[in-house]
Design a binder for these strands. Sequence first.
DNA 1: AATATGTCCAACCGCTGTTAG
DNA 2: GCTAACAGCGGTTGGACATAT
Length: 263
Amino acid sequence: MDRSPCCDKVGLKKGQWTAEEDQKLMAYIVEHGHGSWRALPAKAGLQRCGKSCRLRWANYLRPDIKRGKFSLQEEQTIIQLHALLGNRWSAIAAHLPKRTDNEIKNYWNTHIKKRLTKMGIDPVTHKLKTHALCTSQSKDTANLSHMAQWESARLEAEARFIRESKHVSNPYHSQLQLLHNHKATYPPPLALPPPPGRPYFDILKVWHLTWMVSLTTLLEATMEVSKRKNYWNSVLNSMTLPIWVGLCSNRPFLWYIGSNTRD
DNA sequence: AATATGTCCAACCGCTGTTAG
DNA sequence: GCTAACAGCGGTTGGACATAT
């Protein structure tokens, strides 16, 4: 009635897989399918436990796996999804075709997490670490803080977009989908990110979904932060639809949804 | 050239939810 | 309904390799 143990660990090989083992596992699965992982090693002539075989297949041998460097688009997707989903690597991997959860997890831990930390962003909450702003004195640090602030706001807005665009009841859903699907109809992307040292109200361009309003000249760097805040509160709040699209770095992004104020 | 330190990633470990008996 | 194996997941580790001292 009861099942026998999954695998007898005595005598089973561990550690790096050899090319010969890979070949045996691959050949067996191609011919027979994996079936029961528990039974597979004996049938395939491998001195491994079924779990080890499953992991080797899932993370390395599977033919539909894309290996190598992550693209900028993939990296941005990972950051956005992580802001939404946290460390749910399998859920994140589901949105990145041909990438495994293990690979994404490794990439996050070795690359993205360090970079966000360096920028003063908490990789867990995706929010700015305030002490980083308070103690930053040097020009480089100030620039990093600004970039981090910019990036943090962008990530938050994009995460919010993904979240809200999933709700069918969202009245802006179709328009937002159109925006994302037809970026070419919007003005060409800017080649450069916001200049270091400029405060976050230095948004280069802002569009309303029903008519386009350029604020480039109004938000020049010469305008003091307090004035920009006043401008934001007095002018932008008066517009009807609380949906804004900004342009940062090299692609459009959703700036804000659902509220008229940023602060 | 030798050693120390850092980086990267494949693979393992242990936990949890699901399923078979 | 209970129990134990299975399958999947996320955290962690070990070792190969790269870089710094």
